[in-house]
Write a protein that binds this DNA or RNA. Structure first.
Lengths: 99, 99
DNA sequence: TTAATATTTGCATATTTGCGCAAATATAGT
DNA sequence: ACTATATTTGCGCAAATATGCAAATATTAA
């Protein structure tokens, strides 16, 4: 794993490693359909602007996808991508891959 | 997953989500024997005091274990614990567990 | 004891981060 | 056009974080 890979993975983990952002992710976990930001506000203790910023960061890191729907934005979790990155690290940590 | 679980997991991810700390973890990944801090200094761009602080934080989060060995401290990765926490999240994200 | 090595800690500093508020923007409905 | 709703952005602030340096501490070896 080279430096830029490590940096990239660190950025993803940092995005997930804030309690309100992780709450948003957990909330999206449990939703089978995309959710708008107003609805997501309820699950964490920040106002709409804060949620907007957190979701923007999660989108930049590929954690969520956004779809414009009229005046709303619908957010959904990139389940496969995030789960895969976490498992790649878990496997590396357990030496289940080549050095 | 309740709030304190989310907080705890966020703390772990935050500990891993800093590039120098993740470099330390990756370095420890590749070591079959415990390593001292001086040796670990080489893999990241901070001085000994910075490495000391990063390792302390990783130890507090349960990522690494420390063993005193004379004037050195030997660090080793808690592979099973960290990999398990990452997989629990990955499974949740892919809905491979109960809501 | 003295010197050397490994690590931690205090301090100062620079940077980043998370936050709320208010204003701006975008879009929908009337 | 006007109003309401959803979201973003600029701003300022306070707290957290990362860092290096120098001093302190711990332990080993001579």
């Amino acid at each position: 794993m080279n430096i830029s890979d490590v940096q990239e993975l660190a950025d993803l983990l940092k995005a997930l490693g804030e309690v309100n952002r992780l709450s948003l992710v957990c909330r999206l976990c449990e939703c089978s359909t995309p959710q708008n930001a107003m609805c997501l506000c309820e699950c964490c203790s920040v106002d709409a602007s804060g949620v907007s910023r957190h979701l923007k960061m999660l989108a930049q890191e590929g954690v969520v996808s956004v779809e414009k729907r009229g005046r709303e934005r619908s957010y959904s979790l990139n389940r496969a991508y995030v789960a895969d990155r976490l498992r790649v690290l878990a496997d590396k940590i357990e030496m289940k891959e080549e050095i």
